[in-house]
C-alpha cells in the first residue's frame, strides 16, 4: 500500500529535480531578500537589476531566487551569493547601483566586494 510518507517522499524527489531543472546547479546562486521589510528598504529594485541582467544583460550560469527575511533588519536589502568552490557571501545595504556593481565585479569577474560584506 502506498502510504502518505511514500507520496511525500516522491513529491520531494520531484521537487528537487524541478529545482535543479530551474538551474539550481549553476555555478553561481544569487538570493535576494524579499520580505516586507526588505522590499520597504528597496529590495524589489535590486531584484529587478539582477533579473534584467539575466534576461537582457547576458548574465549566464546564475540561479536567481528570492527568499524571506533572515533577520538582519538594519542591513537590508541583503543579497547572498553562493559560488561553486568559494566561500558564500552575504552583502548588506544593497542599492540598485551596488547590485549592478555586484554583477559587473563579483558575478562576472569573481571579485568579492569586501566593504559591503556582512561578516
Amino acid at each position: 500500500m502506498v502510504t502518505p510518507l511514500d507520496i511525500i517522499k516522491k513529491k520531494r524527489a520531484e521537487a528537487v529535480s524541478r529545482i535543479i531543472g530551474k538551474g539550481y546547479l549553476s555555478t553561481k546562486r544569487v538570493y535576494v531578500g524579499m520580505a516586507t521589510c526588505e522590499i520597504a528598504a528597496g529590495s524589489d529594485e535590486v531584484m529587478r537589476v539582477f533579473r534584467d541582467a539575466i534576461s537582457k544583460g547576458g548574465l549566464t550560469d546564475v540561479y536567481l531566487s528570492q527568499k524571506g527575511c533572515v533577520g538582519r533588519c538594519n542591513l537590508e536589502p541583503t543579497v547572498e551569493i553562493i559560488e561553486s568552490g568559494k566561500n558564500p557571501v552575504r552583502y548588506g545595504l544593497i542599492t540598485p547601483e551596488k547590485a549592478q556593481d555586484i554583477i559587473d565585479r563579483h558575478l562576472k569577474k569573481g571579485e568579492v566586494i569586501t566593504e559591503w560584506v556582512i561578516d
Binding site: 520531494r12 524571506g68 533572515v70
Partner: peptide, 18 residues
C-alpha cells in the same frame, strides 16, 4: 526563513517539508 523561496512549495518540499 531566509533560506528558501517562500513562494515555492518545491523549495519547502525539498527540505523535508510536509
Amino acid at each position: 526563513c531566509g533560506i528558501i523561496d517562500p513562494e515555492s512549495i518545491e523549495d519547502y518540499l525539498s527540505l523535508r517539508g510536509y
